[in-house]
Design a protein around this nucleic acid. Structure first.
Lengths: 195, 195
DNA sequence: CGGATAATTGAACATTGCTCAATAAATATA
DNA sequence: TATATTTATTGAGCAATGTTCAATTATCCG
């Protein structure tokens, strides 16, 4: 058909990403398929490959979107006030993951076939999220070298990640009756107190 | 062909799992395929389905093996002496994951299509690993209610998991120059000191 | 209007998980 | 031993996937 003027390239990309996001959210990463996305936007599979080049890059574009949404979500929570910024961040972290289960999981489920460099798109989104978190850790800690704060941020995020993953995939149940979210907050508090 | 007497059912299962383990270790979970395993053992794809029932159950059987190997690895490290059991465990945790990258990753990459109950096989292996860790945490902490120690164990494992995952998938690089393994040990020490 | 350019298509290919009638081998029965 | 029964094994066939690319269709420009 070749409906070249129906949408600009940018519009079409947006259409595809929106449909892809919905499909990913509904089906989960394991069942996600580029052909299903094509079906949803009413374009052929070839068009998707023209725009994104490969399955991996389509997923990466969706993951970049998820990272931006996550950062915006956390920013909104922070702006909504609340004395305790660390608690706000942890709850934002867990709430976003819970409310966007499949999209959040896809961030970690996806493994690139050929492990070349990631798209700028994705790296920028990731860096923005890291910067947001680093700013809050720096604020809580008062002073300290940038590199030290960045590394501490990495460690605190790793704590949150491990607990959040256990909560979402059910692993936590093997350890009896506890709430990974509360535990994550407690561990992070202890780490900050010791730092 | 129907070489009914070449191997007993148990022997054949073992052959398939050994070949599957090698394939998984070489190719990684994303490229793992039941057909490739069949090719490697010289049986048809149908035979694999007769024995394991589905792709998911084959992967689960392999993951159960990985869990048992991991527990044995940790047990050996603990028996090899070393005053500091927590450090021994953390290094064992990270070393096993690093030396068995693809198999360790498969533990978390795999998502069942239909989320029914896990095979006993798998649950038993997982429970044994948890029990091993719980015993060490209990020893370090001295006293305390079982439920409390189990929950603490879960939280400490979550810390290790998050840091180990970041190290293996490269996420840690976004946080500058640090060693997730050392950070994990530090965080766990802080948590134990605070408990 | 006509030729160059760009977007879009979808058939074709290799590969996957999965099923199941057909076949071959081992065992039980007569 | 010969025949019947049970069991193990096969692999072609199905639907679905990611990927490619010549052919087709729309748009633009002179």
């Amino acid at each position: 058909m070749a409906r070249r003027s129906d949408h600009s390239r940018a519009e079409l990309e947006e259409l595809i990403l929106a449909a892809g996001e919905a499909h990913l959210a509904e089906a989960g990463f394991a069942a996600f398929s580029a052909r299903e996305v094509a079906k949803r936007v009413g374009y052929s599979i070839g068009t998707i490959y023209n725009l994104f080049g490969s399955y991996d890059r389509l997923v990466l574009a969706l993951n970049a979107r998820t990272l931006r949404a996550w950062a915006a979500f956390l920013e909104a929570r922070l702006q909504a006030g609340g004395e305790d910024r660390i608690a706000t961040l942890i709850h934002g972290y867990f709430d976003f993951a819970a409310e966007n289960r499949n999209r959040w999981m896809a961030l970690y489920d996806h493994r690139m076939a050929d492990k070349g460099p990631l798209p700028d798109d994705f790296n920028v989104a990731f860096a923005a999220l890291v910067a947001l978190l680093q700013r809050q850790v720096a604020a809580v800690r008062g002073g300290g070298a940038d590199a030290e704060i960045l590394a501490l941020t990495g460690s605190l995020v790793a704590i949150a990640h491990g607990h959040c993953m256990f909560e979402l995939n059910g692993t936590y149940e093997m350890f009896g009756d506890w709430r990974p979210r509360d535990a994550a907050l407690a561990r992070i508090r202890e780490a900050l107190a010791a730092a």
